[in-house]
Amino acid sequence: MAQAGMLYLVTAAVFLGLDMIGIRYIVRPVFERHVAALLASPLRIGPAAVFYLVYVAGVLWMVSLPALRVQQPAQALLGGMVLGFLCYGTYEMTNYATLAAWSWQQVAVDLAWGTVLTGVSAWVGVALISGRFT
């Protein structure tokens, strides 16, 4: 149990840290170009915190813990990327299908970011906890 708790903390820290950078420098500029009027100012911290807490728990349940059991960080990277693609893809494709102002550029940027972010966060967590950077 202690190992799972440490895995959660490491994965959450990596995910949050990278996402703060990614949102600021990669995602937000694209969203500002296309849907600036829809962006909350200030950011609603409560819903964001709920997302981070639950999403990272899902990453652990579906990706990181199975990869840790077999000591395979690369499995966490690939599984995390698949999960990130599915989750961020659901958000982006739903918005593109239903919101007139949504653009393919938003879809591409956020989908790529979520895919890489989830995979790298899962990989770093498993690699650090297992001691295997592969």
Results as ranks from 00 to 15, higher is better:
12 A>P: 02
13 A>D: 05
17 G>A: 05
17 G>N: 03
18 L>M: 08
21 I>S: 01
22 G>Q: 11
23 I>P: 10
23 I>W: 14
24 R>I: 07
24 R>C: 10
25 Y>E: 01
25 Y>M: 05
25 Y>G: 00
29 P>A: 14
31 F>R: 09
32 E>C: 13
32 E>W: 11
33 R>C: 14
36 A>V: 03
37 A>S: 11
38 L>Q: 12
38 L>C: 12
39 L>G: 07
43 L>Y: 07
43 L>F: 09
44 R>G: 11
45 I>L: 11
46 G>Y: 05
47 P>V: 10
47 P>A: 12
48 A>K: 07
48 A>S: 12
48 A>F: 07
49 A>L: 11
50 V>A: 14
50 V>P: 06
51 F>Q: 00
52 Y>K: 00
52 Y>T: 01
52 Y>S: 02
53 L>Y: 05
53 L>W: 06
53 L>F: 12
53 L>P: 02
55 Y>D: 01
56 V>D: 02
57 A>W: 08
61 W>V: 15
61 W>Y: 14
61 W>N: 13
62 M>V: 14
63 V>D: 05
67 A>I: 11
68 L>G: 01
68 L>T: 04
72 Q>T: 08
74 A>K: 09
74 A>Y: 04
74 A>M: 15
75 Q>H: 07
75 Q>V: 11
76 A>F: 00
77 L>I: 07
79 G>C: 14
79 G>E: 15
79 G>L: 14
79 G>F: 14
83 L>C: 09
83 L>K: 02
84 G>R: 08
84 G>P: 10
85 F>G: 08
86 L>A: 11
87 C>D: 03
87 C>A: 14
87 C>W: 08
87 C>S: 14
89 G>T: 04
90 T>L: 10
91 Y>D: 01
95 N>A: 06
96 Y>H: 06
97 A>D: 02
98 T>F: 12
98 T>W: 07
101 A>G: 13
101 A>F: 09
102 W>R: 04
102 W>C: 02
104 W>I: 15
105 Q>F: 12
105 Q>Y: 11
105 Q>P: 10
106 Q>E: 12
107 V>L: 04
107 V>Q: 00
108 A>P: 09
108 A>L: 15
109 V>M: 08
110 D>R: 12
111 L>C: 10
112 A>W: 03
114 G>W: 10
114 G>I: 12
115 T>Y: 02
115 T>V: 05
115 T>R: 01
115 T>K: 04
116 V>N: 03
117 L>V: 13
120 V>A: 15
121 S>N: 12
121 S>V: 13
122 A>Y: 06
123 W>L: 01
125 G>F: 00
127 A>I: 12
127 A>Q: 13
127 A>K: 08
129 I>E: 00
129 I>C: 01
129 I>K: 00
